[in-house]
Design a protein around this nucleic acid. Structure first.
Length: 476
RNA sequence: CGGGGUAUAGCAAAGUUGGCUAUUGCGCUCGGUUUGGGACCGAGAGGCCGCAGGUUCGAGUCCUGCUACCCCGACCA
């Protein structure tokens, strides 16, 4: 265990103890791929359910496209190809025969979708076209990390086409706000939002907007992005429509996505030395019940009491799990569910039963409170809400405390070394300047703020006057 | 692709200058005692020592080649 933990130095030591979340490449037999076991998949299903609800609320419809992209389709858009070609997995054989044209396992679906879109869009009445896909994608990165950068991952990718640039930009903003709200309200993750620097912009996009979360160790991780694709792909794939005047126009497009990396984000942002800490909204089990007993009689009466409370909680739509296993001790169960991050533990033993009480224990604060059995079901929903909001409040405080300002590079390096987080600074540099800063500090521009300075300041690198503010950080 | 490691049971490791039946812990199976913070005792099962050659009376151990994985870097919409 010690050896494997040290192999992923970016990750907390305990993450592999969350044995039901994932196995590493060794078990899946493909470098950088992971098996997501039932508990981890249940976390993903909750994320999917809630995000899918929000996507559909915006009028976007789900579809499914093929995972194989003919190479000629990917080759059509030059910038996009240059961005993705080095990390593509390529299928050369099928049915024992060499294929006439190699097939790319999708690294993203722009090309295969837009090839189809060109036939679907004829009239301004066909717009906006609002499509989402839940799928797996493959990116053969040189270096992978469990959860944070895996070769294969699951995600949703939204793809939209609009009649005007203004509509497309509104959609980019809507998707970004959707992620920001989702991160904050569902995952208890406050994020910094803004635009990516040219160096970090999606291959083929006009601009990329992003949400960036802050891990407990001071490193930063992307948690959902939204791209304005402009008319680049429309021109490449000939997606045109006739407007009200009967004139041909190219559509304006967007794409936006969020992946299973978000599970890694939850781990590094909320986890502690004991393991995962899940916000109640996303937790597969919000409450785990642990019976404590010595004799069969005690077991029967404790389980009876727990079943009764469970039925009351079921009615209130609380996701509750009664761990009635007789093969492991209560102490083992306490630890196992703590590693898995269950927000609330409910214990009942003979002593409690005699007093008609139980013990509620919070995962996030380790606080234990005795509560009357008759009242516990009524109290749990409020407790879950409290945990959710306090987790968010703590994360917001952590983020606010880790946004620093620096006037020169030495100061920036000092801040990044000592406390991590974001360094906010005026910026008027070029893409090359950003590269130089990265070489010196290991930090990149995570976002270019959409808020401008009232009075221009001096660029941290070039010293030029500017009203543009950027946030530097070291990232996962 | 460059630099550095590792490969022995499901997992983690030990194995001396080559030597006899390849150890240890966790986990697993069975029995008993336990059970309010990862239980204890006893008895078991489980091995092509990464692969292929070579040296040797004898190779987990030495040599050559290969493969895979890991760490650091480059890369990372």
């Amino acid at each position: 265990m010690a050896k494997i933990a040290s192999q992923a130095s970016d990750f907390p030591q305990w993450y592999l103890d969350v044995v039901d979340v994932a196995d590493l490449a060794k078990h899946s037999r493909v470098k950088g791929c992971m098996i997501i076991r039932p508990y981890g998949y249940a976390i993903w299903e909750n994320i999917q359910r809630e995000l899918d609800r929000r996507i559909k609320a915006a009028g976007v419809q789900n579809m499914y496209f093929p995972m194989f992209i003919p190479q000629s389709l990917l080759n059509k858009e030059k910038d996009h190809l240059e961005g993705f070609a080095p990390e593509c997995a390529v299928v050369t054989h099928g049915g024992g025969q060499l294929l006439a044209e190699p097939l790319i396992v999708r690294p993203t679906s722009e090309t295969i979708m837009y090839d189809a879109f060109s036939g679907w869009v004829q009239s301004h009445r066909d717009l906006p076209l609002l499509i989402n896909q839940w799928a797996n994608v493959v990116r053969w990165e040189m270096r992978t990390r469990p959860f944070l950068r895996t070769t294969e991952f699951l995600w949703q990718e939204g793809h939209t086409a609009h009649a005007t640039k203004a509509e497309a930009e509104a959609e980019v903003a809507r998707a970004l706000k959707m992620y920001e709200d989702f991160d904050r309200d569902f995952l208890a993750l406050p994020v910094l939002t803004g635009t990516k620097s040219p160096k970090e912009t999606f291959a083929g996009a006009d601009y990329t907007r992003t949400t960036e979360a802050l891990a407990k160790d001071g490193k930063v991780i992307q948690a959902g992005t939204s791209h304005l694709l402009g008319q680049t792909f429309a021109k490449t794939f000939d997606i045109q429509f006739q407007d009200e005047k009967g004139e041909k126009q190219y559509v304006w497009q967007t794409s936006w996505g969020l992946s299973t990396r978000i599970i890694g984000t939850l781990i590094v942002c909320h986890g502690d030395e004991k393991g995962l800490v899940l916000p109640p909204n996303v937790a597969p089990h919000q409450v785990v019940m642990i019976p404590i007993y010595k004799t069969p009689d005690e077991r029967a009466s404790v389980l009876e009491a727990l079943e009764k409370v469970k039925a009351e909680l079921d009615v209130k739509n609380v996701r509750v799990h009664l761990d009635a296993r007789d093969t492991v001790t209560p102490g083992f169960k306490f630890n196992e569910w703590e590693v898995k991050g269950v927000p609330v533990r409910l214990e009942v033993g003979p002593r409690d039963l005699a007093a008609e009480t139980c013990v509620l224990a919070r995962r996030d604060t380790s606080e234990k409170t005795p509560v009357a059995l008759a009242e516990v079901a009524a109290q749990v929903p409020a407790l879950l809400e409290t945990i959710q909001s306090e987790m968010l409040a703590r994360a917001q405080k952590h983020l606010a405390e880790h946004i620093s300002e620096a006037s020169d590079l030495d100061e920036m390096i000092k801040i990044l070394d000592e406390k991590g987080g974001f360094v906010k600074a005026p910026w008027a540099g070029t893409e090359l300047d950003e590269k130089k800063i990265q070489d010196k500090t290991k930090a990149t521009i995570r976002v270019v703020s959409e808020i401008k300075l009232d009075k221009p300041g001096k660029c941290i690198f070039t010293g030029k006057e500017t009203d543009t503010i950027v946030y530097f950080a070291r990232a996962y």
